[in-house]
């Protein structure tokens, strides 16, 4: 059973989003009922614990063998519930940044970031979101480069910018978002991304195994193991053991 580590006398939190996912991955049954209390929720856990697969299941991608049945229900903070089991990926209103940058090699950085805007079927026709994302991730100078002309960290920034520039997204899923991005850039980006996510009111769920990243995000942390939610709560509480271990090494 998921254990809430926050103290019982804490006042009931503000209305929150909920994500309920189940999928089978070989012998592993992924089953998670995530309550998103903070603007940013981090899925934390060892490799192979099913974190990325949870994101993939939410996106509607193949998980495990073909024809696996996947259930996914998204409940918004106003209580409206939407079953997405059979909704195609393109109509799930999800913005997603995969682990590998997955940039379109035939398009330059600018066109990659504006791709979701160009293909979206919704009536949103305000391209400032694209410009904002380019600025947020400091990509204006790279706008005309192709994927092969970018470093790993630069490509990852484009990947994130593209997710942030997706119009009409109701959920932002980031799989190891700071993979390949140097610490200084990451630490400069974190507060900015938090601010933008909070401003838009779009819940962010990211996957990481980096303790410091989770602490800096002041995120709600969901500890995942073997496809299940083991614990959930503020980063300092859920990751207390990891923090102690790091402190012991530093001494």
């Amino acid at each position: 059973m998921p254990e809430r580590t926050s103290s019982p006398e804490t006042a009931p939190r503000a209305p929150h989003h909920r994500l309920a996912v189940t999928a089978t991955l070989g012998a592993l049954l992924l089953s998670a009922d995530l309550e998103l209390h903070a603007p940013w929720t981090v899925l934390f856990g060892p490799s192979g614990s099913g974190k990325s697969s949870l994101l993939r299941a939410m996106c509607g991608f193949e998980v495990g063998s073909p024809a696996t049945s996947i259930q996914f229900t998204r409940i918004a903070s106003d209580g409206t519930s939407r079953r997405l089991d059979d909704v195609p990926s393109s109509r799930r209103d999800i913005a997603y940044a995969p682990q590998s940058p997955a940039l379109l090699p035939h398009l330059d950085v600018g066109r990659n970031v504006s791709f979701p805007f160009e293909v979206c079927a919704s009536p949103v026709r305000d391209s400032t979101v694209v410009d904002e994302a380019l600025g947020l991730f400091k990509l204006h100078a790279l706008a005309e480069r192709r994927h092969r002309e970018l470093s790993g960290g630069e490509a990852q920034r484009v990947n994130l910018a593209r997710a942030f520039a997706t119009p009409g997204a109701k959920l932002l899923l980031l799989d190891e978002p700071f993979n390949g991005i140097d610490r200084a850039t990451r630490d400069a980006l974190l507060p900015e991304l938090l601010r933008v996510a909070a401003e838009r009111g779009v819940p962010v769920v990211s996957v990481t195994h980096d303790v410091e990243e989770a602490l800096r995000l002041e995120a709600e942390v969901v500890r995942i193991d073997a496809g299940r939610v083991m614990a959930q709560g503020p980063a300092r509480e859920v990751l207390a053991d990891e923090v102690k271990r790091i402190a012991a090494v530093m001494r």
Partner: peptide
């Protein structure tokens, strides 16, 4: 992953 990402970012089949 290119096709998957394009799809979830809003591109129809």
């Amino acid at each position: 992953e290119l096709r998957e990402t394009a799809a979830v970012l809003g591109a129809s089949r």
